[in-house]
């Protein structure tokens, strides 16, 4: 199985043939996902955590959970037989970051350089 580029996203090569092993993979994934989700919801609704750190923590937890889903549900791993899938994923992630990060960056600067909307309305009168 190690001669490269031959694994399907969704195929669980390590546990091929063993039902118990395959179910176990999904169970581990489910457990980790539940843990991360519960943490996210708990952090968002509690006062125990320093407030400014909450958005950062939520983003980290979300990225971790997406990783869990990719590995345990979609079976995208770093193994040599998964190279093509991982490269496509990285390209997708790059575009996602460019679109979201770029939009936020540009719009923040645009807001800063614009006349506030209420003043603009008064000038038009």
């Amino acid at each position: 199985m190690s001669d490269g580029f031959n694994t399907v996203p969704g195929d669980d090569e390590a546990d091929a043939g063993s039902v118990a092993g395959a179910v176990q993979t999904y169970l581990i994934g489910l457990g980790l996902a539940v843990l991360l989700t519960a943490t996210s919801f708990y952090i968002a609704s509690t006062n125990l955590v320093w407030a400014p750190s909450i958005p950062v923590a939520l983003v980290v937890l979300a990225i971790a959970q997406m990783g869990v889903h990719l590995v345990f549900f979609l079976h995208i791993t770093t193994g040599p037989e998964n190279t093509n899938n991982v490269m496509a994923l990285f390209f997708g992630v790059l575009i996602v970051f460019l679109v979201i990060g770029g939009s936020l960056w540009i719009m923040a600067h645009l807001n800063q350089n614009m006349i506030p909307m209420d003043q603009l309305m008064q000038m038009q009168r």
Binding site: T37, S40, A44, P55, L61, A62, Q65, M66, F73
Partner: peptide, 14 residues
């Protein structure tokens, strides 16, 4: 489900 993870984090929790 992966998209929903991003969605509940960005929309509902943040």
């Amino acid at each position: 489900d992966i998209i929903w993870v991003a969605l509940f984090t960005v929309v509902y929790l943040m």
